[in-house]
């Protein structure tokens, strides 16, 4: 209608004001995030012997990480657990996001989203600890099941192992998965679904051919926002993981605070990030290809 929309706003003065405004948060992130991340990278090429830091650049830490079976085992297990958490969280979350977006009355959607986010904002530490209470030897599940006579012996496979870590993290990251999927579903023009039905598709095929592809950006965001942070989780494996559920973050913490070997910790941190980064990129490439193949 009017030419307001097409009018570019990028005058030189505007750009300068924008840059000035973004300056403080940018500088903050640069000095306290980018520089420290660079420092971690640099550190990983140094070595430490008790209190003396040797600043000659070397690949020794990485060599050790690749040859010492414990490190590799921890890294791979972290990756597996993160993957399992991601799959479980996103699969469990999708129907909920779908339900809220498509079946909840518009005026009640905000309430549902609020209900879903509340647990996320309560003390993480205490939530994880409570899972230990629920899953434990004398925990809620075991005492209840024994009480009603379904089992005689307490179930042992639900605490102090990777299963417990996956359950606990899937709980912790639930809103991170639900929200992006919900947002993507909300954006879908409902008449597209009617058009698909009008053109002869069933509810199921409409979901597969229209809803799901259009929700993919949200699913991709959910996957990344769950997968990347979980690899570095420290509290959950420590509290409910037992010896076989420990993850790389626990080792990083040990290197930094207990063994006083910051360079080795840094190398492990870099490796962990490189691995999630690589897996994430592969995942992005695959989904992009999937979406293009459809489009």
């Amino acid at each position: 209608m009017s030419d307001t929309g097409s009018r570019p706003r990028a005058g030189r003065g505007e750009a300068a004001r924008g840059a000035l405004l973004v300056g403080p948060p940018f500088l903050y992130a640069l000095l306290l995030l980018a520089v420290p991340l660079g420092a971690i990278g640099l550190f990983s090429f140094w070595t430490q012997d008790y209190l003396t830091l040797d600043t000659t650049l070397t690949l020794k830490n990485y060599r050790e990480a690749f040859t010492e079976p414990l490190y590799m085992q921890l890294l791979l297990r972290s990756l597996m657990i993160s993957g399992a958490v991601t799959v479980a969280t996103v699969l469990l979350a999708f129907p909920v996001a779908y339900y809220v977006s498509f079946h909840v009355r518009p005026e009640r959607k905000a309430m549902w989203i609020f209900l879903i986010t509340i647990p996320f904002w309560t003390s993480y530490l205490i939530r994880v600890f409570l899972w230990k209470v629920i899953l434990g030897f004398n925990g809620v599940i075991n005492t209840t099941l024994q009480g009603i006579g379904i089992i005689d012996e307490p179930l042992r496979f639900i605490l102090y192992n990777a299963n417990a870590v996956v359950i606990t993290l899937a709980h912790a990251f639930a809103p991170f998965a639900i929200l992006p999927i919900f947002v993507a579903l909300e954006k879908i023009d409902r008449s597209l679904l009617e058009a698909s039905r009008d053109l002869g598709e069933t509810h199921v095929t409409t979901f597969l051919r229209v809803t799901l592809p259009l929700a993919m950006p949200g699913v991709v965001a959910a996957v990344l926002i769950v997968f990347i942070p979980t690899i570095g989780d420290y509290v959950t494996p420590r509290l409910v993981g037992g010896p076989n559920g420990l993850m790389i973050a626990n080792m990083i913490q040990t290197q930094f605070l207990k063994l006083n070997n910051a360079p080795m910790g840094a190398a492990l941190a870099v490796l962990a990030m490189a691995m999630v980064g690589a897996v994430s990129l592969v995942f992005l490439a695959l989904t992009r290809r999937y979406l293009r193949g459809r489009g």
Partner: peptide, 11 residues
């Protein structure tokens, strides 16, 4: 991951 933020700042 928060641990990355933590250790990089610590270093």
């Amino acid at each position: 991951p928060e641990i990355i933020v933590a250790v990089s700042l610590l270093v």
